[in-house]
Design a protein around this nucleic acid. Structure first.
Lengths: 114, 114
DNA sequence: ACAATAAGTTACCAAATGGTTACCTTTAAC
DNA sequence: GTTAAAGGTAACCATTTGGTAACTTATTGT
């Protein structure tokens, strides 16, 4: 019998995975980083996502503190803007390192044109 | 209409997520790194995983080139050893950086005792 | 001859994740 | 007064992921 056991629910890496592992989350972070920060605008860049799923992914990023959602008080057709929190912005360096690792170690699996 | 679109199936980050996002994969990599490299030994440290799922996760890590599985030719009850490939070992630094980021930015969500 | 051990496999089930299509709400412009 | 646009919801479905419990195979020690 062991006294040391490992539990996936407490694993730091597992928690990190949950932050970015949603199918569209890395793309959403990228878009927001580049000023593409409104619902329909994002949707235009991701032709195959449904509005329902887009909403879900944005809400999860918001709940995890990576994005903030702001509804502008204009009376026109509703305008909503998403932007990175400090936490969301701080991910960027880490993501760059992850991408570097991928370039080095996953060459084969990646599309050639990058 | 945009000419630039984003497709989750081509996203580098999404491919990276797939490497480590299995519920038990980070723990398995950790165990193998620390010499806990046999099926039942691993199972002893992860009381709540089933053998089926353990097999699946190991097979996926193997298919992704992070682990290698070697069946020793002893005649006794089968002995199988798992060890890190070079690719698997190269992940370690990156994982350390991910964990540092988590310590800084996810303090609240993490268990206190680390 | 019989039980034990290592490393699984099989059949089956539940929850989570992502997807489709249609519908809703508010206001401004024609 | 109707239509259009922005940013969604609702009802429903399929696939993937993880889980349980029982069974398997080969060999070795008693």
């Amino acid at each position: 019998m062991h006294t040391v056991c490992f539990n996936a629910d407490l694993c730091v890496m597992t928690k990190f995975s949950a932050l970015i592992a949603g199918k569209w989350k890395p793309i959403l972070l990228y878009l927001v980083q580049h000023g593409i920060n409104r619902f329909n605008l994002m949707h235009g860049y991701m032709p195959t996502i449904s509005k329902k799923v887009l909403t879900e992914q944005l809400r999860e990023l918001e709940a995890d503190g990576l994005l903030r959602r702001e509804e502008l008080k204009a009376k026109a057709p509703k305008v909503v803007v998403y932007y990175l929190t400090e936490k969301g912005a701080s991910l960027r360096l880490l993501i760059d390192e992850i991408i570097s690792w991928c370039m080095e170690h996953m060459k084969d699996e990646l599309p050639q044109d990058l």
